[in-house]
Design a protein around this nucleic acid. Structure first.
Lengths: 225, 225
DNA sequence: GTCTATAGATTGATAGAC
DNA sequence: GTCTATCAATCTATAGAC
């Protein structure tokens, strides 16, 4: 039986690799991140990735799974709570409540106690990453929640055609994904120059709560247009 | 002096490489596209890329420049027409007109006579691509137009804070970029399965004109919320 | 479990014949 | 201008000592 220090080192290595991979995948993309960059940042040996995770793609899967399982549980619970609440009061759910149930936990992840600061950015990237591996893994995890979101919005806006609903959901996803992405860009942009049109300091502009409210107002109005 | 056949072959090779690069960069990303994949699809020799363009990054620059120069001219003209028209009538431009002046030419590029079907997708990708080379080149070309868009929207919505305007423009860009991206995904998804919630045939859902109207309604409502 | 060393494949780019 | 051949670097992944 291994002593404590060995076990702790093992766990730490795995976690350090996951953290570094999350950060680098979010910032540079899947194809843009080499295993050497990951192990370099994680202060781990190159072979440790393959030992602990098997392949680079399996590492990506592990990065997604660590965050997405609890996040999807939260989003699913909140979406079903909105539906149940409306049903028990014999009314339709409001589109705004449905959108909030989906968006708020997603962005709030940025300031969670877990310190998962880079994961929302990774979600933003995954939504639009053209790499098949990224999209396949992401869709497998997020597909059911996405389906639930569409169903709830269909209840909220029954007069909206399926065609229009489909696109409006994707506009929402696009705006949300881009928001997560901009947030990371803004951090690195302090050295290279301000984003076009950014008025105040970066910190103020990227405050998660204020950003969520802005996004909520925007997509709620668009959804109910 | 070279005879006609030689000149034509040269031009054709350059054009075939540009077309193939545009298509593959849009579909697989900059880092996800090898020079061998490009020359393979263009039926050109591997060394032809370096001969005609110098480097892979210079090729990307050429791909952007070919489309972005005329597209930006159109967008700039239309944005200034909206401002001038409002100014001559001593009224504020409407946010909807400003947004249409920016969005319509962007998406309409998909069905242009040039057959630039993949370039809107490339724009969608460039907006969110994490690769520094991609972002640098793209921002250099699109920065001035982007600045003009923000200025025009500031005139249209003077009561909106600079902070809110900044984010709403980025929500709009995100929705538009994602829309261009989904459009390509939907094409390739006919084999792998429908996107979640897609109601009708792919062709109907991706009709450029209808898509533009959907997007216009969505972002106009969000912008004026 | 962690390390060194390296296999095996692929990449961007170039030299030189034609 | 186009081709073959190849360099040098990089990549993922693995074998084997410790």
């Amino acid at each position: 039986m291994a002593d404590n220090s060995t076990v702790l080192t093992q766990i730490d290595t795995k976690k350090r690799i996951l953290d570094a991979a999350e950060r680098l995948f979010a910032r540079n993309g899947f194809q843009g991140t080499s295993m050497r960059a990951i192990t370099g940042e994680a202060k781990a040996n190159l072979a440790a990735v393959n030992y602990h995770f098997g392949t680079k793609e399996a590492l990506l899967e592990a990065v997604f799974e660590r965050r997405l399982v609890p996040l999807n549980k939260t989003r699913t619970d909140r979406l079903e709570a909105v539906r149940d609440s409306a049903r028990s009061e014999a009314r339709r759910p409001s589109a705004r409540d449905v959108l909030r149930a989906f968006i708020e936990p997603t962005i709030a992840f940025a300031v969670s106690k877990e310190g998962a600061g880079d994961f929302p950015t990774l979600i933003g990237r995954a939504i639009i990453d053209p790499d098949d591996a990224v999209r396949k893994i992401f869709l497998r995890h997020v597909g059911p929640v996405f389906h639930l979101l569409i169903d709830a919005l269909r209840e909220a806006l029954p007069e909206l055609s399926a065609h229009a609903l489909f696109w409006r959901v994707h506009f929402t996803i696009g705006a949300m994904g881009h928001t997560c992405h901009i947030r990371t860009m803004a951090e690195t942009m302090q050295t290279t120059g301000k984003p076009h049109g950014l008025p105040d300091g970066v910190a103020a502009a990227c405050d998660a709560e204020a950003m969520t409210e802005m996004l909520m107002n925007f997509v709620s109005a668009g959804m109910e247009a």
